[in-house]
Simulated scan of single mutants.
Amino acid sequence: MRREQTGPANFARDPDAFETFYRRHVDAVTRFLARREADPHLVADLTAEVFLAVLDSAHTYRPARGSEIAWLYGVARNTVPAQRRRTARESRAAGRIAGRRLLDADDILRLEERIDAESPGRLALEAMADLPNGDRALLELVAVDGLSPAEAAAALGIRQGTARVRLHRARRRIQRVPGVTEPIGGTK
């Protein structure tokens, strides 16, 4: 069996398959998270959490519903708000730095460079902040994260027709935002 054909469902039986999957997608997941968070420690922690969640939920991946990256972005979209809720609880109880691992200077520099490179994506996300949640989530995945509307629909667990309607509505609304002169992103 070729490793490129080994899907997430095989991770429990084949750690090498997971390593190959991780290496293939870690940069995309890190970029996804760097567009949403500006703290390099948090981006590193969330990246690790996404891949831990992948190990736990690998059996839920269905290739017919979308690509691996669309599925990963769905996992990451759930990881970010879960982390925010957890941080809020920890902040109230023990302060903001509880549980963070220390990064060396090279790790921080690399993550700061990644975060800087993703600043246009963060600006686009800020421009979308006032959109309804469903419209914003879809537009983020298509315009900022580069998924096709079909892949974004799969990541959000909605029908493709619903995705097309939301995407059209979101693009129309975002054009009215001051400073946005044309729709963000395009259809794949």
Rank of each mutant, 00 (worst) to 15 (best):
residue 54 V to Y: 03
residue 55 L to D: 00
residue 55 L to E: 12
residue 56 D to M: 05
residue 56 D to L: 10
residue 56 D to H: 13
residue 59 H to T: 09
residue 60 T to H: 10
residue 60 T to M: 11
residue 60 T to S: 14
residue 61 Y to Q: 05
residue 62 R to F: 05
residue 62 R to L: 13
residue 62 R to A: 10
residue 62 R to V: 11
residue 63 P to S: 07
residue 63 P to R: 08
residue 64 A to S: 14
residue 64 A to R: 15
residue 64 A to P: 00
residue 65 R to Y: 09
residue 66 G to V: 00
residue 66 G to S: 04
residue 66 G to Y: 02
residue 66 G to Q: 04
residue 67 S to Q: 08
residue 68 E to V: 00
residue 68 E to M: 02
residue 68 E to S: 08
residue 68 E to A: 09
residue 68 E to G: 01
residue 68 E to Y: 00
residue 68 E to H: 08
residue 69 I to P: 04
residue 69 I to V: 14
residue 69 I to H: 06
residue 70 A to D: 00
residue 71 W to T: 01
residue 72 L to C: 02
residue 72 L to Y: 03
residue 74 G to Y: 00
residue 74 G to I: 03
residue 74 G to N: 05
residue 75 V to Q: 04
residue 75 V to W: 02
residue 75 V to E: 02
residue 76 A to G: 04
residue 76 A to Q: 02
residue 77 R to L: 11
residue 77 R to Q: 11
residue 78 N to V: 02
residue 78 N to Y: 04
residue 78 N to R: 15
residue 79 T to N: 04
residue 79 T to A: 09
residue 80 V to T: 10
residue 81 P to N: 11
residue 81 P to L: 11
residue 81 P to T: 09
residue 81 P to Y: 09
residue 81 P to I: 10
residue 82 A to N: 13
residue 82 A to V: 06
residue 83 Q to H: 15
residue 83 Q to V: 03
residue 86 R to M: 12
residue 86 R to F: 09
residue 87 T to G: 04
residue 87 T to F: 12
residue 88 A to S: 12
residue 88 A to Y: 12
residue 88 A to I: 03
residue 89 R to H: 14
residue 89 R to S: 13
residue 89 R to M: 14
residue 90 E to C: 00
residue 90 E to A: 06
residue 91 S to N: 14
residue 91 S to A: 12
residue 91 S to T: 13
residue 92 R to D: 15
residue 92 R to V: 10
residue 93 A to W: 11
residue 94 A to V: 15
residue 94 A to G: 12
residue 96 R to G: 05
residue 97 I to F: 13
residue 98 A to G: 00
residue 98 A to R: 07
residue 99 G to L: 10
residue 99 G to K: 05
residue 99 G to W: 05
residue 99 G to M: 09
residue 99 G to T: 10
residue 100 R to K: 12
residue 100 R to D: 11
residue 100 R to Y: 13
residue 100 R to Q: 12
residue 101 R to Q: 13
residue 101 R to F: 12
residue 103 L to F: 11
residue 103 L to G: 03
residue 103 L to C: 05
residue 104 D to C: 09
residue 104 D to L: 07
residue 104 D to P: 07
residue 104 D to F: 12
residue 105 A to E: 15
residue 106 D to K: 14
residue 107 D to W: 11
residue 107 D to K: 11
residue 108 I to P: 03
residue 108 I to L: 15
residue 109 L to V: 05
residue 110 R to G: 02
residue 110 R to W: 11
residue 111 L to M: 15
residue 111 L to R: 04
residue 111 L to K: 00
residue 112 E to M: 06
residue 112 E to D: 15
residue 113 E to I: 05
residue 113 E to L: 13
residue 114 R to A: 08
residue 115 I to C: 01
residue 116 D to E: 15
residue 116 D to V: 08
residue 117 A to W: 11
residue 117 A to H: 12
residue 118 E to A: 09
residue 118 E to K: 05
residue 118 E to S: 03
residue 119 S to G: 01
residue 120 P to S: 07
residue 120 P to D: 11
residue 120 P to T: 07
residue 120 P to M: 08
residue 121 G to I: 04
residue 121 G to M: 03
residue 122 R to H: 06
residue 123 L to S: 06
residue 123 L to D: 07
residue 124 A to Q: 08
residue 125 L to R: 04
residue 125 L to P: 02
residue 125 L to N: 03
residue 125 L to V: 08
residue 126 E to P: 02
residue 126 E to V: 07
residue 126 E to R: 09
